[in-house]
Design a binder for these strands. Structure first.
Length: 432
RNA sequence: GCCGCGGUAGUAUAGCCCGGCCUAGUAUGCGGGCCUGUCGAGCCCGUGACCCGGGUUCAAAUCCCGGCCGCGGCGCCA
């Protein structure tokens, strides 16, 4: 017997009387004695199978051996019946059990009893069979495709930079050490330096790949391993790449709203409507607004989460840029402003209090890079292999990086980045 | 790392403040029974739990101390 001839989504009233083979998981069983119902789940949805004790005594016996989440193929006839969900169901002739699930399940997949996120992550594969979980990852996939399409449309090429690196790319964040053939190596915290160099070869590049931070961060918005969407663009400044970013976001949201109607309904969530251009607030004006709201904050300070919560309430914006950050708040490769080098050509994209993306015009002049490295307390010598290429015509360039998980929170309404990460890695979690 | 809250059957919860009426309640699951149209099926019977260690007390799920774990808020962090 073939595994399957039709997905649940391919069965309709038009197939009435036809023999089909469906395949999937046993989602629910309902036993009414003479009539027994199986709800079969596949990647697209659900379909009901009905067994009559009188007419199918052998299958009625088999029914008792079927456990929830077992995988089966069922050969049967499509039958129209007003009493069935959607008006049709399958009358089986044969049921093949491919893999019998142990009972009871460590997690209720059918959604009758909720489970804590901790339990769900422990039982993640079962959890990922739930409608909500599958909706999250469908939405993320649709968004990723839209992001790629928009960047390709604008003449970017997709690249992969090395993830095992010899030294810290930019100082600051702690790195995970790796044993590399007897030498010291690290997992990349960011593709930053490599993507800048690639802008010096391909002009427009992007990368969607994991990055690692060995930070103590323990919040619903940080992970030790996360997917970063990075781009870098030659002959561009931060205004140009901000425009690319807001268009990428716009396209992704549009695609999700158009293609994920079912998923958004499952999640009972509607992503924000986006009107371009997004508002740009100057860093100094944000500080001023916060001071007026009574916060003890001064120019030069980073803007913390409580302050950002306050700020988006005050300005009544959900999605906005904060631009022209002070030099001390941004990394060494960030270009200082020409009119005032205390500030930089830089931006954060915020959704409410959450920093989705950050970017800047980059420094493409070697002497200035060395000066900035020293100001940050970093040793230019350890960046020798990065710096030397700046002797050979690195163009002016700009770029940004966006955290996929954080973006996914905006797209899905999830409250914890672990929800939208298949197998999250955080301070405490290394398995599964 | 700091602050707050929490840890009770497979899962989710009640009980804890005010120690004994707890033989630890409920839902769901699981096992069994009844039931020919369920769609959170229903009804009956059964099954299964107080995070670990120490202390207070005649008596601890309940109070105290320590540990471990979780969630949230911060911090750290391109």
């Amino acid at each position: 017997m073939k595994y399957r001839t039709h997905l649940s989504s391919e069965i309709s009233e038009a197939l009435a009387g036809r023999e089909v083979i469906i395949a999937g998981w046993i989602h629910l069983k309902r036993d009414l004695g003479g009539k027994k119902f199986l709800i079969i789940r596949d990647k697209d949805g659900y379909i009901q199978v009905v067994i009559s004790r009188k007419e199918q005594p052998k299958l009625a016996e088999l029914f008792y051996e079927l456990t929830p989440e077992s995988t089966v193929s069922i050969r049967g006839t499509v039958k129209l019946d007003k009493r069935a969900p959607n008006g049709y169901e399958i009358v089986p002739a044969e049921i093949i059990v491919h893999s019998r699930a142990k009972a009871p399940l460590p997690l209720d997949v059918s959604g009758k009893v909720p489970a804590d996120i901790d339990t769900r992550l422990r039982e993640r594969v079962l959890d990922l069979r739930r409608d909500e979980s599958r909706a999250y990852f469908k939405i993320i996939s649709v968004a990723l495709r839209a992001i790629r399409e928009e960047l390709y449309r604008r003449g970017f090429i997709e690249i992969f930079t090395p993830k095992i690196i010899a030294t810290a790319t930019e100082g600051g964040a702690a790195l995970f050490p790796v044993a590399y053939f007897g030498r010291e190596a690290y997992l990349a915290q960011s593709p930053q330096l490599y993507k800048e160099l690639m802008a010096g070869a391909f002009e427009r590049v992007f990368e969607i790949a994991p990055a690692w931070r060995a930070e103590e961060s323990d919040t619903p918005y940080h992970l030790a391993e996360f997917i970063s969407i990075d781009m870098e663009m030659a002959f561009a400044d931060y205004n140009t790449v901000m425009e690319v970013l807001e268009n990428v976001v716009y396209r992704a949201v549009k695609a999700v709203k158009e293609e994920c109607v079912k998923e958004l309904k499952i999640l009972n969530y509607e992503p924000p409507d986006i009107r371009l251009p997004l508002k740009r607030f100057k860093y100094v004006d944000v500080i001023k607004a916060l001071q007026e709201a009574g916060h003890n904050i001064k120019v030069g300070d980073d803007i913390g989460t409580p302050e950002l919560r306050e700020f988006c309430k005050v300005v009544k914006e959900d999605l906005f840029f904060i631009v022209d950050w002070p030099s001390e708040a941004k990394p060494f490769y960030t270009m200082p402003r020409k009119d005032n080098e205390m500030f930089t050509e830089s931006f954060d994209l915020n959704w409410r209090f959450l920093e989705l993306a950050s970017g800047s015009t980059r420094v493409h002049i070697k002497d200035l890079l060395i000066k900035r490295l020293k100001e940050k307390g970093l040793n230019p010598e350890s960046f020798r292999y990065f710096l030397k290429w700046f002797d050979y015509g690195i163009p002016p360039h700009a770029g940004w990086g966006m955290g996929l998980g954080r973006f996914a929170l905006m797209l899905t309404g999830a409250r914890n980045i672990r929800e939208v990460t298949l197998f999250p890695r955080d301070k405490k979690r290394l398995k599964p």
